[in-house]
Structure formats: structure tokens, C-alpha cells
Design a protein around this nucleic acid. Structure first.
Length: 198
DNA sequence: CGGGTGATAGACT
DNA sequence: GTCTATCACCCGG
């Protein structure tokens, strides 16, 4: 299977639209040992300045959040203890919006994903969480500031998506009103969507 | 050196 | 399904 990166204009849509548009597309990671591809099935939007759950709330700008003030389509990775989480930057320059990739569905490079995750795990546990999918696909902090339209790590046109479900976001703790914003999007009945904990 | 940053694996019910 | 112990790095001061 040959994959082609989506043009940068794709990322210029309003961030809530972009979060939904990403569903069904492929994340592709070209590695020396082979190609890894997975379908995006769950995303969450974060709208920097006015969203208490975002790292960039109130335009908080540090070296860590700096990339979110950059061009739409940039890769924002951050480390959560043992896990790396990956985001797609949205919004215009100086508007720190981002979309967290929460779950993907393995498409190609299954053997390598299995090795990355541990051979004893069931397939549905490979990528059904934001920390899991980065490990399965070999995405590391080295990609901080990379752009999703460039190889070896890019997003490619998918083959469509099923019914999209909208709901509140996960794991954002006490973030005031922002907790209730329906900014989580996922494909209905997809077994790789991460489970919601109330 | 202290604060910021939630998800994971596995045990239990 | 539900619970919870455990997990590490980056940054600013």
C-alpha cells in the first residue's frame, strides 16, 4: 500500500471540524524495518486560550507548549510519565489549538506493532489509548515540531469513516466548565476506541 | 529542586 | 467492569 501525505491546507479548518475530519484518515510511519499505518478512530479538540483543560490555557507559553503557537498541522508530542502522547496542532499562527489523537486502528505493520507493545497482549489493546498508540507506532518526542504533511511520519487520506459520536473529553480532571465541552469525537462501535471512565 | 503533566497493567469482584 | 499502585521526563527558579 502506497500512502500520500495530505496537503497542509487540510489543517486550516476550524479545530472542531478538523478533529472530526481526522477520523478515518491514516497515520503512517515509515521506518527502516517497514511501514506502519493505522486509522484514526478517536480524537479530542483543545482550544488553547479559552479552554481550561489545554496546556496552553490563557496563552500559557513555555518551551513545551511553544509548538502549538506555530503552524497548523505541526506535531505536538508530550510525555506523561512513561507514555508519549501525540497531538495535531490546529488554528492559525499564535492561536494554540491542538487535537489529541486518543485511539487508532492498526492497518499495516501488525507484526511490528505487536512487538512494540508486547507479544502477550490482545490486538485490541495495542492502540486503544493515547499512550498505547504512540508506543505501537514508534512515535517519540523526537517528532516534536515535525509536520504531519512530511515523511517519515504523516497523515494520509483514508477510506471514509462510520457514524461519528460526540461526547465529553477524558482525563482532564477538574478543569471547570471545560469538563463538559463535547469535544471528543470517535467512530461509533469501533473496538479500538478507548473506554470512557466517569 | 519542586511542580506540572494522566494513562497503563493487572488484580480483584 | 472496576479499582488502584505505579510509572519519568522536562522545565523554571
Amino acid at each position: 500500500m502506497i500512502y500520500t501525505p495530505i496537503d497542509t491546507s487540510f489543517y486550516k479548518a476550524p479545530v472542531l471540524e478538523l478533529a472530526q475530519n481526522l477520523l478515518g484518515h491514516y497515520i503512517v510511519h515509515e521506518q527502516p524495518d517497514g511501514i506502519l499505518a493505522a486509522r484514526i478512530v478517536e480524537t479530542e479538540a483543545y482550544r488553547g486560550p479559552e479552554d481550561q483543560a489545554a496546556h496552553s490555557f490563557g496563552n500559557r507559553r513555555t518551551k513545551r507548549t511553544d509548538i502549538m503557537f506555530g503552524a497548523a498541522g505541526s506535531v505536538y508530542t508530550y510525555r506523561m510519565h512513561t507514555h508519549t502522547l501525540v497531538n495535531v496542532v490546529g488554528g492559525p499562527i499564535d492561536t494554540p489549538h491542538a487535537i489529541l489523537i486518543r485511539a487508532v486502528e492498526p492497518i499495516e505493520g501488525l507484526e511490528q506493532m505487536r512487538e512494540n507493545r508486547g507479544v502477550q497482549l490482545k490486538m485490541h489493546d495495542w492502540t486503544n489509548g493515547p499512550g498505547k498508540l504512540t508506543k505501537a507506532m514508534g512515535i517519540t518526542m523526537d517528532y516534536y515540531g515535525h509536520h504531519w504533511s512530511k515523511k517519515p511520519l504523516f497523515i494520509a487520506e483514508g477510506a471514509g469513516v462510520g457514524k461519528i459520536v460526540v461526547g465529553p473529553r477524558v482525563g482532564i480532571g477538574n478543569s471547570g466548565e471545560a469538563v463538559h465541552y463535547p469535544w471528543r469525537f470517535y467512530e461509533k462501535d469501533n473496538p479500538f476506541v478507548s473506554k470512557y471512565r466517569a
